[in-house]
Design a protein around this nucleic acid. Structure first.
Length: 524
RNA sequence: GGGCCGUUAACUCAGUCGGUAGAGUAUCUGCCUUUUAAGCAGAGAGUCGCUGGUUCGAGUCCAGCACGGCCCA
């Protein structure tokens, strides 16, 4: 064959040559068509599920099955094909599982068998017949009728090893899903976790809302945003980095319990833990404090673990994790001293902190708020060691612009971050609802931002206005859903829990070849 | 942004000291009516990621680039 040589044509790719295997498939498809076989019919009645048949008849022995006179009609993809001249076995896979079929020339008829001989692994077919058990004991459908449902024009990956190349798995998730059983299982678990999150909050009286994805002022977190432009309004808009300021406006509006489960976008690095778009759950509860949210979080995570894992104690990437409440609590200072082995007196000493960071290979500006040095040290020395669930509390006020000050010590906030398996998985605090303090902190934040910022920082004065109307005392939390799913599915990379993770588009022929792209009609 | 590793047939992978490009699966042909990584016999299939360099000769050595993976910032 000649590889799929792609020609660069100004953004689109056209296959100039095809592999031999694909040419042969096209040829076969043509031959079938000439014999009057529809390659892509649309009149297939809803079939039985392979898994359901197996569930009901899985325990029947050969004699029992002979008494079952019903015919069963399934449809699915041919995953394996073993031909013997005038008969063949095939494995047919649908969303519920797979089932073996047996096709005999003398049963389906010469003409049909001739057509069947042109079917390939990867084709979707429909089969109808009675159940029997083979000599080796496998429940099998003896085909009376067989029909092509969708012709596959391209060969599937190798049947035994499947598709292993991670790049191809992420770029061609459809193929990954066809070949690798566990992938669908992971995403089923993901769906179940999201369902449980939703059920938990709804049943606790939280209102699910949707707030803007496109915002004119970046707020609610510190991260670089994606910029887009609205033509009619003539303004730049930012894809949200967090929904926080909108959800708290709803607290002002009288929604005492709200949550949003949706995507955030951050224009930063891609890593094993970061995808530019990721799923965040944020919830806000009036008349609750960050301490109440600790209890909720423990309860929620334990419930999810029980459902997914059947226990609150399980393995993650070889680590033993125990989510049984209550979880460990530590202040940021404590964690730096006890886990990070930083002498306590250093924690208030700018020079000592900078020196220690420098020793760790991190150079930071001298005029950063002290809290930044502490959290940097925390990231390096403490976070990786927090394997068991741990709430870290009392974050410095200077790095927590939206959190309520602690009543005894206004230099720290009523805030926690949750760490499991050395990773941040949630962030929560009692909400700052004093508009005067909020305004001062916003303005200070804006004043302190460097000139090198690509996006000029802006104070959200409408949010201040909302606080002036009056926001009830409340606490709010954000949970990184992808990371939670990673934990519960024992996935090492965030890409394994996002169906289509962000990848750089392929711009040259070769591995990960772009498929032929027809120029989009009407596009420039 | 830095380091290490990878990129060879549609897929999974070998490829020794620099000397004509290999296997299995898949495909095609023939045989085969209870197989299940079916079997047997045969065949076709490659711009060795891209570009340049060294060399009589490069999949192999060197440089740059692209994409990806892992680790670090």
């Amino acid at each position: 064959m000649s590889n799929e040589l792609a020609e660069y044509t100004g953004g689109n790719y056209i296959l100039s040559e095809e592999s031999q295997v694909i040419q042969q498939r096209r040829q076969k498809a043509l031959e079938l068509e000439q014999q009057g076989i529809e390659l892509f019919p649309n009149d297939i009645k809803k079939p039985e599920r392979a898994g359901a048949i197996k569930k009901v008849y899985g325990n029947y022995d050969a004699e029992d099955l002979e008494k079952v006179e019903d015919s069963f009609r399934v449809a699915g993809r041919i995953m394996a094909l073993r031909r013997f001249g005038k008969a063949a076995f095939a494995n047919i896979k649908d969303a519920s599982g797979s089932i073996q079929i047996h096709v005999m020339r003398d049963r389906v008829g010469k003409d049909v068998y001739k057509i069947f001989k042109k079917f390939d692994i990867g084709d979707l077919i429909e089969v109808e017949g009675r159940l029997f058990r083979t000599r080796t004991g496998e429940l099998t459908i003896e085909a009376d009728r067989i029909r092509l449902v969708t012709k596959s024009m391209r060969p599937l990956p190798e049947k035994y090893h499947g598709i292993k190349d991670k790049e191809l798995r992420y770029r061609r998730r459809y193929e990954d899903l066809v070949m690798n059983e566990d992938v669908l299982e992971t995403f089923r678990t993901r769906a179940r976790i999201i369902q449980m999150l939703r059920t938990y909050f709804v049943s606790n009286g939280f209102l699910e809302v949707e707030t803007p994805m496109m915002q004119s002022i970046v707020g609610g977190a510190t991260a670089k945003p994606f910029v887009t432009h609205h033509n009619a309004l003539g303004i730049d808009l930012f894809l949200r980095i967090a929904p926080e300021l909108y959800l708290k406006r709803l607290l002002v509006g009288g929604c005492e319990r709200v949550f949003e489960l949706n995507r955030n976008f951050r224009n930063e690095g891609i890593s094993i833990q970061h995808n530019p778009e990721f799923t965040m759950l944020e919830f806000y509860e009036a008349y609750a404090t960050y301490e109440d949210l600790m209890v909720r979080t423990e309860e929620l995570f334990a419930q999810i673990a029980m459902d997914v894992k059947g226990a609150t104690r399980f393995q993650y990437q070889g680590m033993d994790v125990d989510l049984t409440p209550p979880w460990k609590k530590m202040t940021l200072h404590q964690s730096l001293v006890e886990v990070g082995k930083v002498p306590e007196e250093e924690l208030v000493d700018r020079d000592a902190l900078l020196a220690r960071l420098s020793g760790l290979g991190v150079e930071m500006d001298r005029d950063e708020p002290l809290g930044k040095y502490l959290t940097k040290l925390f990231d390096l020395l403490v976070e990786p060691n927090l394997i068991q669930p741990t709430f870290i509390t009392r974050y410095p006020t200077d790095i927590s612009p939206l959190a309520r000050r602690n009543a005894e010590n206004p230099e720290v906030t009523d805030r926690f971050e949750l760490f499991i398996t050395g990773r941040e998985i949630a962030n929560a605090f009692s909400e700052l609802n004093d508009p005067r303090d909020q305004k001062a902190r916003f303005e200070e934040q804006v004043a302190n931002r460097g000139d090198d910022e690509e996006i000029p920082p802006e104070v959200d004065y409408d949010y201040i206005r909302a606080l002036e109307i009056g926001m009830p005392p409340a606490a709010g939390e954000g949970i990184g859903v992808d990371r939670l799913v990673m934990l519960m599915t024992d996935s090492a990379s965030i890409r394994d829990v996002i169906l289509f993770p962000q990848m750089r588009p392929v711009s040259s022929p070769g591995k990960g070849d772009a498929e032929p792209v027809e120029p989009v009609k009407g596009s420039k």
